[in-house]
Nucleic acid binder design. Structure first.
Lengths: 209, 209
DNA sequence: TAGATTGTTAATCGATTAACAATC
DNA sequence: TAGATTGTTAATCGATTAACAATC
């Protein structure tokens, strides 16, 4: 278990897992790195290199056992067990996140929803009661979630992120368009879709735009 | 206008713009690369290097004019003009996207919403009528949108993406957990948040997970 | 002029990829 | 054994960063 796994490798590992789980469900037994390239669009050499950071999972001349490799990658990413997730922000995005079946199917489980709006606190978001963000530390003593999703406006994101860290959250998926400044030990990933759209916009040719 | 701008540079450009627009609104006149680093967390040398792909925007000893630089970056990313966007998928995520004010404020404008579900077609998503995805080519002849957002299940994504390309869309933001296989001339960015959560999950220490 | 900060160079660091010996 | 495919090496490619001459 090498310590220095490249960031892009981790993202690709998650992609491999998506496809392997699908193949496994279909009953496919074995797959080669070249066949994976056909499906994922990721170069076969990169696929093999990515796996090599974690061990040897294939058989020369044969390929990889789909079920076995799927299980191995799930274990590497720690998605082989259920992960509790705190959701902050009971707005439209928060609502879509709670309703999204893709979370459950990949072992992520929204353990609680928080907001700071007193018109929302106490009401329900789907089947979850909306809790006061002021109580997050207290609540998470019971829940023990280590991952949180920030689905709130940029103006509140830094403050709430600090509260989450206080509540023992170690990893944050941030949908707000702001750079969180937190301890280096906290893993943060940004998911600002407007930023993604801006990059796409750049790629339009001038006659298009 | 160099042809070979690194991908990470484009993402950072969008980040700079977020902060510069904010500073500009606050009436800040001038900012140095070191001050930008304080705000964005992005190294000052990288900031200057990123800009250097597009020209010289600063004054030695002084820094950068906030308003001017903001306008320049907006022009580079082509977000200085309104960009029409087709949204496919009138589910919970689609609903959150239409309602998100951050799109409008950055000049992205949802021009039409499509779905393939006959229970939804003809109904409204907020103030937009849900149109039949089968008509996307026809409809976009009028609208002329070049960007689309895919907020549909993975099983339909490839097929719909091909329809979008037929309808002259050149850039796709894909929320479905699937790798789209399209012509190299089509820009695609993936925004699979479950994949992001998996990467965060990896970073949890074993005692946490 | 003195102080500050740019734009760019060059060194470093890291990731991708082709090629191939090892092995099933 | 012959054919296929792995895991790894080494070459290439690309991005980050420190350092500094140029310049306001």
């Amino acid at each position: 278990m090498n310590r220095k796994v490249p960031g892009p490798t981790l993202m690709r590992l998650a992609t491999y897992l998506t496809y392997l789980a699908e193949l496994d469900a279909k009953g496919v037994d074995t797959i080669s790195s070249a066949q994976m390239e056909d499906r994922t669009g990721i170069n076969a050499a990169i696929f093999r290199k990515d796996l090599s950071y974690f061990g040897e999972f294939g058989k020369p001349g044969i390929g990889y056992g789909v079920h076995e490799l799927s299980a191995k990658i799930a274990a590497i990413l720690k998605v082989d067990r259920e992960q509790g997730v705190l959701l902050v922000g009971a707005g439209n995005l928060g609502s879509a996140i709670v309703a999204y079946p893709g979370l459950r199917s990949r072992n992520f489980h929204i353990a609680a929803v928080f907001d700071n709006n007193y018109n929302k606190i106490g009401r329900k978001l789907w089947d979850l009661e909306i809790l006061d963000i002021a109580n997050v530390k207290e609540v998470n003593k019971q829940l023990g979630a280590r991952i949180a999703i920030l689905a709130i406006p940029a103006s509140a994101a830094q403050e709430v992120a600090e509260m989450l860290v206080e509540a023992d959250v170690r990893a944050i998926l941030n949908f707000a368009p702001v750079t969180l400044r937190l301890s280096k030990h906290i893993a943060v990933r940004n998911a600002d879709s407007v930023q993604e759209l801006a990059v796409l916009s750049y790629h339009l040719s001038d006659q298009d735009a």
